[in-house]
């Protein structure tokens, strides 16, 4: 899958100074599936907007966005729900976990929809990220860092061409971030999928293919 922007800019960004941005100032921008992109910037530069527009949960933009040469504005609700099950996965900055469900139930909610992973693999991933002992706890009482890891595992429970990760390590220590990043890269590798990862600041993570200045 390719993602292509043509003079695309979110409407709220029009009032801001976007000079020097490789995203908002670009005539056209093409993102390839085999690449890993890291978008690092201070808050308010439109990182979340970028991912949300690609994911179809925001449509307040000027210009055009194409997924595989198809204009986003022509996608129906059905297209979007298929896309979110099979082509695009999102690790939300706000996590979007259900507080009343346990960590495991939150993960299963997505996995039941896609039938992608076996229970053993879910457990394995949770072990890798050090949250296996919290799987049976309600998501609402977990720490934000633990919740972030649940959200990462959930996002990996589906096929995708692009993984959109929005500041997904913000509440993890360096060591945990590295482990999570490693898992994400592995899972992307298996799918041959691209990654767009946003971050507030220098993550100190191993180099991405491309750093986009936004």
């Amino acid at each position: 899958m390719t993602i292509r922007f043509e003079k695309m800019i979110p409407l709220p960004m029009l009032e801001q100074d976007t000079s020097g941005s490789e995203v908002w100032e670009a005539e056209a921008l093409l993102l390839h599936q085999e690449k890993r992109y890291v978008v690092e910037a201070a808050s308010g530069r439109g990182k979340t907007s970028l991912l949300s527009i690609i994911y179809g949960i925001r449509s307040d933009y000027r210009g055009k966005v194409f997924l595989d040469d198809r204009d986003l504005s022509t996608f129906t609700l059905k297209d979007w729900s298929l896309l979110r099950k099979e082509k695009l996965s999102f690790i939300f900055q706000g996590l979007e976990l259900f507080d009343d469900l346990t960590g495991l139930e939150n993960i299963r909610l997505k996995n039941n929809l896609t039938g992608y992973h076996k229970d053993e693999r879910i457990l394995e991933m949770a072990q890798l990220l050090g949250v296996d002992s919290f799987l049976k706890r309600k998501a609402g009482i977990l720490s934000f860092g633990q919740q972030q890891r649940m959200a990462i595992i959930r996002a990996l429970c589906q096929p995708f061409d692009f993984l959109l990760a929005d500041e997904c390590f913000s509440h993890m220590d360096h060591e945990n971030s590295l482990r999570a990043y490693k898992l994400i890269l592995e899972e992307c590798e298996i799918r041959g999928a691209g990654l767009i990862l946003t971050s507030l600041n220098e993550t100190g993570l191993p180099k991405a293919d491309l750093n986009l200045k936004i």
């Binding site: 729900s81 979110r84 999102f90 979007e96 929809l113 959930r154 589906q158």
Partner: peptide, 15 residues
């Protein structure tokens, strides 16, 4: 809120 969230996770409104 929950419905919006489910929609973000890929659930169709019919589901």
């Amino acid at each position: 809120e929950k419905i919006r969230r489910l929609n973000k996770l890929g659930f169709h409104y019919r589901e």
